[in-house]
Design a protein around this nucleic acid. Structure first.
Lengths: 227, 227
DNA sequence: CGGAATCCTCTTCGATACTG
DNA sequence: CAGTATCGAAGAGGATTCCG
């Protein structure tokens, strides 16, 4: 029973303080960020959060589970491994992550520091706040992204869409690229045609799809482009 | 030089992680919450954050200032005292606080625990997410709230409004009540007429104003009321 | 092998005391 | 009033070990 449950609280009857009691601890919102893309095993979470330390991850998951933000689940066969996933309450944190991301992205993501690691999952969460439905009219397709050793899925159906981690059954296009290229496409104004011409992206399936994807999901558009 | 500047970072090139590098430390977002209502002196901040400890408040203000979220200012004469206030970047955190507050309020503010303190300022921040412009058409007036020993102002002009701490020049109505009553009006369905009949609110000025105020700003409306 | 509990060191927190 | 100095307690981070 060394696993003490001395949850520290601000002890204020205030909605913001209560929220911070639950998700205000170090690492907690980054765990939630990674879980937004679907159920994850302990090991996957550990990999996506360099520096967290195994005891701390276990403690945070325990706290989030106790608060009803996260629950343990079992993947459908044949995987059948234990995973952590967001509850409905946990999924309701998406507006918090989007607001934080907008603010942090606008004011503090200017330069890339040498010690920064690039986490592929972060981009697929960021896409949830950069989707432009006006560029998705009539689009109905699924993309698979192979980024290093991780696989992500983006699905668009008119004005609705989803992003997640995991393999797609039958994608309309499969993109293979490194995280640097994904970053350049979404944040640094690299265009789809430039990326393809430079061989930075390999496409399997519809070759036009990458251009549609960037139009719908780019975060910082290329300079000099209007509309 | 004990005041080390070893800001801990997640070292991720991710907008959410960067935001948390700046405002993810303990107490930081609660300091920002209090500053949303206007410039504050060190002492005022300390009072609004029971339990923070003076060294920690000083450290947080130093970090926020270094990050460009907070700046030192001087109140206009005759007060002329040194204050802390949000910069434009700091004020841009309002959507984060609103998202956190909505989430915390909906899922974790059910019961009031005996150890909870009630912070008047929190309600005037919460009003920024509960304002209903459809109930403010044609309304153009200022209210002053005297809650215990603190004074707040709410100003409405059609579909725009503001809330802040400090005395109002010429309010159209002045309400004196305790924080319990404010809580009951906004969260527990106490109606303006009930509060007035029970003598829980003293009004100076337009007696109808309290009813208009609750219509525009109530957070959890009284049960059984539609529209 | 994935999923943690344990141990150890270092930093941070929180409270009080103290100073310009 | 506005902080700095100090110190015990708690939390973070890393390595290792244990358990199924």
């Amino acid at each position: 029973m060394a696993a003490t449950s001395t949850r520290r609280s601000y002890d204020q009857y205030c909605a913001v303080a209560r929220a911070l009691d639950v998700v205000g601890d170090r690492w907690t919102l980054l765990i939630v960020r990674d879980l937004m893309l679907g159920p994850k095993r302990y090991k996957e979470l550990l990999e996506g959060l360099p520096g967290i330390g195994t005891n701390l991850l276990a403690a945070r998951l325990r706290e989030l589970e106790a608060a009803g933000v996260v629950e343990r689940g079992v993947l459908p066969p044949p995987a059948a491994s234990a995973v952590y996933q967001l509850t409905e309450i946990g999924a309701a944190l998406q507006p918090v992550l989007i607001a934080l991301g907008r603010w942090g992205g606008r004011h503090f993501l200017r330069e890339r520091r040498p010690e920064d690691v690039m986490v592929p999952a972060a981009y697929f969460v960021a896409m949830r706040s950069s989707f432009k439905p006006e560029h998705a009219e009539g689009v109905r397709e699924r993309y698979e992204f192979d980024i290093g050793d991780r696989v992500f899925e983006v699905s668009v159906d008119g004005d609705t869409f989803s992003t997640g981690e995991g393999r797609t059954q039958t994608p309309d296009a499969l993109f293979t690229m490194d995280v640097e290229t994904l970053n350049a496409l979404l944040l640094e104004g690299l265009t789809a045609s430039e990326a393809l011409a430079a061989g930075r992206v390999a496409v399997s399936g519809d070759a036009e799809a990458l251009e549609r994807f960037t139009r719908m999901f780019v975060i910082r558009p290329p300079a000099g482009l209007t509309g």
